[in-house]
Write a protein that binds this DNA or RNA. Structure first.
Lengths: 334, 334
DNA sequence: TTGAAAGCGCTAACAT
DNA sequence: ATGTTAGCGCTTTCAA
């Protein structure tokens, strides 16, 4: 006994009354059940059009036990890297008749759990993009939001996982720079707590082991344009002849600063990014970076999630290895 | 009589049974109704934690007649301009206890109506960002999804509307270029059907009227990096000494091409954008552009929507006038 | 082919 | 302070 009178909501009962049939028949017409007399069906459709009826998703979900909708929780909708993944995910889900709803936590790590629970409760399944919460919280949350796929965090097979191999990727960047003759390389580090930054640090440690003659200096930086822009003095201080950034956004901010400072790239300093966001091929100079097939990543996230929805789970994580794309921002050490 | 057995969903009844109380009491505890005996409340909370219960949003929505959630339909989640608006909207809505769910139509104009109806049916209200559908379709849709606010399309007072004044804005860019001495200016036009492009064309017509001595040449372009990149030959052909782009993304793509071609900016060619996306201050040269307080736009969208939800509608459209931000990509005609 | 009725999980009168 | 119950809008058995 409730339901706020929000003015005049048209319900199935209104249509039934208007068309002079039962609610069951209206439901059948709405759902395209073929056994309805065409005359009657037409009357129903007329009433629907007339009154502008469209069925309550809440009621359908409750009755059906499913909504054919999935949720995606993203820490920062402004991150271009996520868009490409989201795009692939969206297309793939749409092909299978699912709708995708996105919630942006705007880096409020403390609200992630609440938002994930909430959105999961209005959808059939959920995807968490690079969640910022700590591992224990995440592992604890997972059973409560199953079916779930996590992008870019490991889950110890407690949920589907799709990952980009950052360790390997940053290693490829470093080796590229080393081949170009650079022996002192700065790494503009991402946020210290970010898992993807830790993975990159691990990757760099491997390269350090392989090339004791090369010095890779980590410089505190961050993940934004501003962070990259601000990193120049620290990088200069290292005396490095090449810099690789946590991601393209940082690299681009850094490049902007170098242009201002009159530092020529790649002659005086080689610069590399990571992610290959769309703008990176249009910057000047165009940016050497790691390219992941992010659309495919999105599709893989969907297929993994669909398996989970259908119960044919396979919790083996999928890893995508990005490829080096060499453009004009890196060059031989002079 | 339905509800797919999706494994084991915990419901309020399970908690009631586990805690040895009625569903009503569980509901009270979940909703923080104070009149519950602390001992009992504790038992309930224990059961909730134990079983990992979280209430079904569908059932709550149905019972309450509201979900405290709003939907936003965006034509392209990758457009940086939308992020800033979305951010302001999100923050403002959150302050009032509302959750924001975003659906991306990925420029599938023909699916916009369906998606809007669907998302509106699981939320309390909806915002349409720059809908691509034709005007008649839009006007027809509006009553069906009320309460609704439209961003960047006029609605003839049939719904809330928040607009950026593109005509005035592009005029300001043109006048800036004219003051710098440019007499032949290229306009890299956006998609022909885009309302925001038409508004810009109108604004340019006004300037043409004011300055008969100045020639403003419209060059077909588009709205992407690629479009801007590809526009160079056409612009060169016009012989213009300055170019203003449909938006920053186009301007940045164009700038990338100019760098490749060795055209120096602003010495040989002045370039201006529109929107002031975050990267524009880090490009080289940094981009002269029109800055709108997009966060404020988002907040205004929310307050307009909230008025509609509360029934205190005021359908007077709100217009935001962007400000010129001069950076390094425009200069005196040489 | 159509209708009646039960039930999805929850909330809120109302009764105790 | 707690329980009972009706009902939110829909789908689906079951009977006609």
């Amino acid at each position: 006994m409730t339901a706020k009178k929000t003015g005049r909501e048209i319900t199935i009962s209104d249509i039934a009354a208007a068309a002079g049939v039962s609610k069951a028949t209206v439901s059948r017409v709405m759902n395209g059940v073929s056994t309805v007399n065409e005359q009657i069906a037409e009357r129903v459709r007329a009433a629907v059009a007339e009154l502008g009826y469209s069925p309550s998703a809440a009621a359908r979900s409750l009755s059906l036990g499913e909504s054919r909708t999935i949720g995606v929780v993203v820490p920062d909708l402004a991150n271009p890297m996520f868009h490409q993944v989201l795009h692939g995910l969206n297309s793939a889900a749409e092909r299978d008749g699912y709708r995708v709803l996105v919630a942006d936590t705007r880096e409020h790590r403390e609200r992630e759990v609440e938002i994930a629970l909430d959105i999961r409760n209005r959808t059939d399944a959920i995807v968490l993009f690079a969640p910022r919460m700590d591992r224990l919280t995440m592992l604890d949350l997972m059973p409560k939001i199953d079916p779930v796929v996590i992008f870019n965090r490991t889950t110890g097979k407690r949920a589907g996982a799709v990952l980009i191999d950052y360790a390997e990727g940053i290693g490829a960047v470093a080796r590229h720079l080393i081949e170009l003759g650079h022996t002192k390389i700065a790494y503009l580090a991402g946020p210290p707590q970010a898992r993807s930054n830790m993975a990159r640090q691990d990757g760099l440690d491997i390269v350090r082991g392989e090339h004791p003659e090369v010095e890779i200096v980590s410089v505190d930086c961050g993940s934004s344009f501003e962070d990259g822009y601000a990193a120049w003095p620290a990088v200069r201080e290292t005396g490095a002849s090449a810099a690789m950034a946590f991601n393209d956004v940082v690299a681009l901010g850094f490049l902007g600063r170098l242009a201002e400072e009159g530092v020529s790239v790649p002659d005086e300093l080689s610069v590399a990014g990571f992610d290959d966001i769309p703008f990176s091929q249009y910057s000047s100079p165009s940016l050497t970076t790691m390219t992941a097939r992010l659309g495919d990543v999105g599709e893989k996230i969907w297929s993994t999630l669909l398996e989970q929805i259908r119960g044919t789970a396979d919790l083996e994580p999928t890893t995508f290895a990005p490829q080096l794309t060499v453009r004009s921002s890196t060059g031989k050490k002079k």
